[in-house]
Design a binder for these strands. Structure first.
Length: 512
RNA sequence: CGCGGGGUGGAGCAGUCUGGCAGCUCGCAAGGCUCAUAACCUUGAGGUCCCGGGUUCAAAUCCCGGCCCCGCAACCA
């Protein structure tokens, strides 16, 4: 059986879940559901990144121990994904014991092989910020926060011989066109590699930072972010058993935002090489959500909280908007106007209303009982089923390339076709002629198939809606004959339920 | 010569990799339908695809040059 391993980044627990986190996690979830539907075994990982300066400071500010603070925020992330029904298979925390042990194993292994060495690092250090600044970050030679000159200090630290793997990485990216996608990010990664790679500082002295994983070969140091966070992708599988590492790791598909491209495209593969492990299969990079109302900020009150969106507009509507509106890889604009517009136009008017009108006719004309199809199908019936077949083909093609917006567009083209089919065949007119009752039954049978197929095709994106439609069709969830050919699914006499509003229209005036 | 993204009807955007009648949503105008969530369907108006060259039978798309806008200053994916 083929497999896929899908990961979100592990989210840093210095902030609560917002739009960016939600987007990555929701597409990961949709991908998993899609692949499962295709009969592919999928494993989805998410989790939280909990070590480091900022966490220790935030905890201190709140009068808490770092672990207690991390517990709190991590729980909020987990609860958010649980509430959103994210089908993750494991939730990793970098403070989990098995993770810390595995990180130390890898560090020891690379240290033993000679790719980690002890050296000296010099840089501009601001005692106010407790951090080093690069010359570029300094404003007129001063720390931008404290407006004072940093001190040049030297510090002994451990370094990873990243440069040693530059050629191998370059070669890998060049020979694997799909390793980093979309293309623009692959190009950018190749641009990073045009310059010689410097060795990577991977430690912090405990005197300066205690909240981290201790180096196994020097207890005066903790490992700095890279070896801690990135390795979680593997340690989570390790936790599930060696078998999981073997079967899923080579099929790893990371989903990340463009801000962490360099760490994932350059640091991570070289680390894997040094550890003697296979590289991940693909790095999938998406863009940013840009707020139409200005930069996301608490003072502007435009922070998008996933649970609030779920509460106000419904989870499926929110999911739909994010996946329909953003071109994977590019930036997109977020605005409530656009969200409401999508909900009303695509979900309420086109999709939801279609379900309503079909079920209403089925109820009114036949008390919900499905009618038989004739042996010969008129041209328009064949065209309708063909249109959905085409939609499915297009959807599959677009999903391979993570073109969620186009995948959905394809399904909606079929939905539009269905609305037109109703007007063309006019069952509500034919029904007035008793002689044509049989034909009305056929038309409605086809329309029920259209709805069933739409539910199946949109299930990865709109899981709750798909479930509701199955309920309305009085069909058990995820049955084996879900893929029954068009026309052979409903047994004549099977009763479907009366309509229900799937997506209420939202009056724009009522919302800000 | 910092890096990157973008400029397509009134608005917001796809399409550009892989050249083939310029497409979608909203809005606007006229009409139709009455099964449906005032939803649905049809037709129409509206475009120098930023500009200038080049390649080609054919360019929004490929090549060269130029102009303009926006991020990289975080509660970030």
């Amino acid at each position: 059986m083929s497999r896929i391993y899908i990961t979100t980044p592990i989210y840093y627990v210095n902030a609560e879940p917002h739009l960016g986190h939600a987007y990555t996690t929701l597409i990961a979830d949709a991908l998993k559901r899609y692949y499962q539907q295709q009969g592919i075994e999928a494993f989805l990982l998410t989790g939280t990144d909990e070590h480091g300066d900022k966490i220790a400071e935030a905890a201190k500010a709140g009068g808490m121990e770092p672990k207690a603070y991390a517990d709190k925020i991590s729980a909020i992330f987990r609860a958010t994904w649980d509430t959103c029904g994210i089908a993750y298979d494991h939730f990793i925390r970098t403070t989990d014991d098995y993770h810390k042990e595995f990180v130390q194993q890898i560090l020891q292994k690379i240290y033993d092989s000679g790719d980690i060495y002890f050296g000296e690092y010099g840089g501009f250090y601001c005692f106010g910020c407790e951090r080093f600044y690069t010359e570029k970050e300094l404003v007129q030679g001063k720390c931008p926060d404290h407006q004072r000159e940093p001190t040049y200090i030297k510090e002994k630290n451990y370094f990873f011989r990243m440069g040693k793997y530059q050629e191998r990485l370059l070669d890998h990216i060049q020979t694997h066109a799909d390793f980093i996608r979309p293309e623009r990010y692959r190009t950018e990664a190749l641009a990073f590699l045009r310059e010689p790679l410097e060795d990577l500082c991977i430690s912090r002295p405990k005197s300066r930072l205690e909240w981290g994983i201790a180096l196994p070969f020097d207890s005066n140091y903790v490992t700095y972010v890279w070896f801690d966070a990135l390795i979680s992708y593997v340690s989570a599988l390790k936790f599930k058993g060696e078998q999981h590492v073997e079967t899923f790791w080579p099929k790893a598909n990371h989903l990340i935002g463009k801000d962490i491209l360099k760490t994932h495209a350059v640091y991570w593969p070289t680390m894997l090489m040094a550890a003697g492990m296979p590289l991940y299969q693909r790095l999938n990079v998406h863009g940013y959500w840009v707020m139409a109302s200005g930069k996301m900020s608490k003072s502007l009150g435009n922070v998008v909280r996933p649970l609030e969106m779920k509460e106000r507009y419904g989870l499926d509507a929110f999911r739909y908007f994010l996946m329909r509106e953003m071109v994977f890889g590019q930036d997109a604009t977020f605005s409530l106007d656009a969200l409401i517009n999508r909900i009303n136009a695509d979900l309420a008017n086109n999709f939801g209303n279609l379900v309503s009108r079909v079920l209403a006719m089925q109820e009114k004309y036949f008390a919900g009982a499905v009618q038989p199809l004739g042996r010969e199908w008129p041209k328009e019936d064949v065209e309708l089923s063909d249109r959905f077949r085409r939609a499915e083909e297009e959807l599959q093609r677009h999903m391979v390339g993570l073109q969620f917006h186009r995948a959905l567009e394809s399904v909606w083209a079929a939905i539009d076709h269905t609305n037109r089919y109703i007007v063309q065949t006019s069952p509500f007119v034919l029904v007035k002629d008793p002689v044509k009752r049989g034909r009305v039954g056929e038309i409605l049978h086809h329309l029920l198939e259209a709805i069933r197929t739409t539910a199946r095709l949109t299930a990865p994106f709109l899981p709750d809606t798909a479930r509701e439609i199955r309920t309305l069709l009085a069909v058990s969830d995820g049955t084996a004959n879900d893929r029954a050919p068009w026309g052979s699914f409903f047994v004549p006499g099977h009763k479907v339920l009366p309509p229900k509003i799937l997506f209420p229209r939202i009056e724009p005036t009522a919302e800000g």
